[in-house]
């Protein structure tokens, strides 16, 4: 299948600054769910801004949904790519939550009777239906984050780029948001999300791209990436706590490679198997 995002040797530096992206190659196929991780200042936001045209790549270097970002207007790209800013306050400018969410839908030219139910649905998806008529400036930061999210998810664009979508959310809210994103992914949307929360990465991403000082140093299946503890340490990242726990336990099973544990469920299963191995061993 043709990649929906294709970055072909992209380098970038802000004016009068050091180089921030160094020779990036990245292809993402339709329907993938990719986590983009890396330490503060690694260049994650800078990279994804090139996907929506907020930063202009040189011609031919970045293609999204068969459009060359270099010469496509942002407003046109936005029909293919939804983008949630890292800071919700960069996105919100209306004086009611409802109007904020309706804005993009109206720009799609949808008839009024279609916009309203979609706004309602988007708000209830993120658990904000009771705040529809509030002024976003009077919501808590985490609530504003979800307003920003709803205003983009409502657009149902083929590609969705989320820059730290769960900032300031508690455990259940994080799960709610990511379940929503996962549902969109299952329905065929391509997702790229940036996060510092490695448990979210472990739970929801099928592929992880690790950015370190402007370079992609790891890119692959989530489990394989979390296996590379040395490389991760080099970019100052830590795998989820259970992953580290299983590593430190260092209890081999009968398999040749030691397993990479990504969730509490898997850990429980793993402990079960270790016990069985021990019991059988004792019985010999």
């Amino acid at each position: 299948m043709n990649p929906v995002i294709k970055i072909d040797g992209l380098s970038f530096g802000y004016e009068f600054g050091d180089s921030v992206l160094k020779d990036i190659y990245l292809e993402i196929s339709p329907g993938e769910m990719v986590a983009l991780v890396g330490q503060n200042g690694a260049g994650k936001t800078t990279l994804v801004k090139h996907l929506i045209g907020l930063l202009r790549p040189p011609a031919g270097k970045v293609r999204v949904a068969d459009l060359d970002v270099a010469n496509t207007r942002v407003s046109k790209l936005s029909r293919q790519v939804g983008y949630v800013f890292q800071n919700p306050d960069h996105q919100i400018f209306h004086d009611t939550v409802q109007a904020e969410v309706a804005f993009g839908l109206n720009n799609l030219g949808l008839p009024r009777e279609e916009v309203e139910p979609r706004v309602t649905a988007a708000l209830s998806d993120v658990g904000l239906e009771h705040l529809a008529n509030e002024n976003p400036q009077r919501l808590s930061r985490g609530q504003r984050q979800r307003v920003a999210l709803a205003s983009v998810l409502a657009l149902r664009t083929p590609v969705i780029v989320l820059d730290e979508p769960t900032t300031g959310q508690d455990y259940q809210e994080r799960k709610q948001i990511m379940a929503l994103v996962e549902q969109l992914n299952k329905a065929g949307h391509t997702i790229v999300f940036i996060t510092h929360d490695m448990s979210l990465v472990a739970h929801y991403a099928s592929r992880v791209v690790v950015l370190c000082q402007g370079q992609i140093i790891l890119d692959g299946d989530t489990r394989e990436v979390f296996r590379q503890t040395d490389k991760l340490a080099e970019s100052l990242l830590l795998p989820p706590q259970v992953t580290v726990l299983a590593n430190q336990l260092n209890e081999p099973l009968n398999t040749s490679v030691s397993p990479v544990i990504l969730s509490v469920d898997e850990m429980q299963e793993y402990l079960q198997r270790v016990r069985e191995v021990k019991r059988n061993g004792a019985g010999d």
Binding site: Q39, N40, R141, E164, T167, H196, L236, L237, L238
Partner: peptide, 12 residues
């Protein structure tokens, strides 16, 4: 108030 909300794991 949520001083590490945007920090990487080691930074936090």
């Amino acid at each position: 108030d949520e001083p590490t909300s945007e920090l990487d794991p080691l930074g936090s």
